[in-house]
């Protein structure tokens, strides 16, 4: 593997060249999607228009399109994608299972059931997000609590997560049949996850969350890389395994929580970002930055498709994250099996 060596008088630093190139390309692609989202679409905005909006010297319509509609939507998509990508990669590294995702710790199922409960009991869709947060955090706590065995046991988390997820899923399905048709339809849209008509409140939630949690996640990845080795090896390296696992789970749950409250549980983003990033880097896990960027690219692209290609059908972005994510996973599968690595 070609290494890139950065030297300064104080310290030197070696980076795999491939990782640098991959991350740069991913970042460029994400930037391209942001630009396309801002300037393209059904109401084209030129760069001059955009600068004029920032200077406050333009007509009300352009200002409204850019500032009230596009900017919050794109900022939410970017933040949510980064958060899901980070959370997915951390959970998959911790549990050493490419089929794991934050769903496995019960958060998504709990959030869905919580949202359904508020609607079924209170009869209004006003409290969907608090209900989802309550349900999601509750479910994650139950999964972690039940798999506690003088510390967090990763093998237990997967199994107990499956049990809790299936149970909550069925309770959700049962509640769904007790709702009237209109509420069921509205909730279905939320459960899939949407970026439609996001506000600056959503932007604040997701970016505040990222600002606090992402730096910790990036700092922690060096410990996580060692903590995900075989247990005796990790202990031999002097890793405080239990603390590292708690930090990882806490970060992942926090990131998923802010992302879900901003945009709903966009399916598949957290699940596929890690394997794709891993495949591109051909490096050992975790590859946090690449996974976060892949998550952002998928989310931004899904959002773009949902508003342009099939705008008449008004499908939410969550449908497209899944439609994009699934074939990508199949592609990764084929590539990996050609190399006989699976």
């Amino acid at each position: 593997m070609t290494m890139l060596t950065l030297r300064s008088p104080v310290f030197s630093f070696r980076l795999p060249l491939r990782r640098v190139v991959v991350n740069a390309l991913l970042a460029a692609l994400a930037a391209l999607l942001i630009v396309a989202g801002l300037f393209g679409g059904s109401y084209p905005v030129s760069f001059a228009d955009f600068m004029a909006v920032l200077n406050g010297t333009t007509d009300a319509v352009t200002e409204m399109v850019v500032l009230d509609y596009r900017l919050p939507r794109i900022l939410t998509a970017l933040g949510v994608g980064l958060a899901f990508g980070l959370a997915g990669e951390m959970i998959q590294t911790l549990l050493r299972n490419p089929l794991a995702s934050p769903d496995i710790i019960g958060f998504t199922a709990g959030a869905g059931t919580g949202a359904l409960f508020t609607v079924a009991i209170l009869g209004t869709t006003a409290f969907v997000v608090p209900g989802a947060m309550f349900g999601g955090l509750g479910a994650a706590l139950i999964v972690i609590g039940l798999s506690w065995r003088r510390g967090i046991a990763p093998g237990q988390i997967v199994l107990i997560g499956i049990g809790i997820t299936l149970t909550l899923g069925v309770i959700g399905d049962l509640l769904m049949t007790r709702l009237d048709a209109t509420s069921a339809y509205e909730l279905m849209k939320w459960l899939v996850g949407s970026l439609h008509s996001r506000s600056y409140a959503d932007v604040q939630i997701i970016w505040l969350g990222l600002l606090i949690l992402a730096p910790v996640a990036f700092w922690h990845q060096f410990i996580l890389a060692r903590a995900s080795l075989d247990e005796p090896v990790a202990l031999g390296l002097g890793i405080a395994l239990n603390r590292s696992r708690m930090v990882t789970l806490g970060l992942a749950v926090g990131l998923v929580a802010v992302a879900v409250s901003a945009a709903g549980p966009l399916p598949f983003v957290a699940f596929v970002s890690g394997p794709i990033a891993h495949g591109l880097n051909r490096a050992s896990r975790p590859t946090l930055l690449s996974a976060a960027l892949v998550g952002a690219i998928i989310t931004l692209f899904a959002d773009m498709v949902s508003q342009t290609a099939l705008s008449g059908m008004s499908l939410p972005a969550g449908v497209f994250t899944a439609l994009i994510g699934a074939p990508v996973l199949i592609w990764v599968l084929i590539i990996q099996s050609r190399k006989n690595r699976l």
Partner: peptide, 19 residues
């Protein structure tokens, strides 16, 4: 893995139709 991927693809299409 193939089962998970194909299942998810079909589920996504199902959601699209449900909406």
């Amino acid at each position: 893995l193939a089962g998970a991927a194909v299942g998810a693809l079909f589920l996504a299409l199902t959601w699209a139709i449900l909406i």
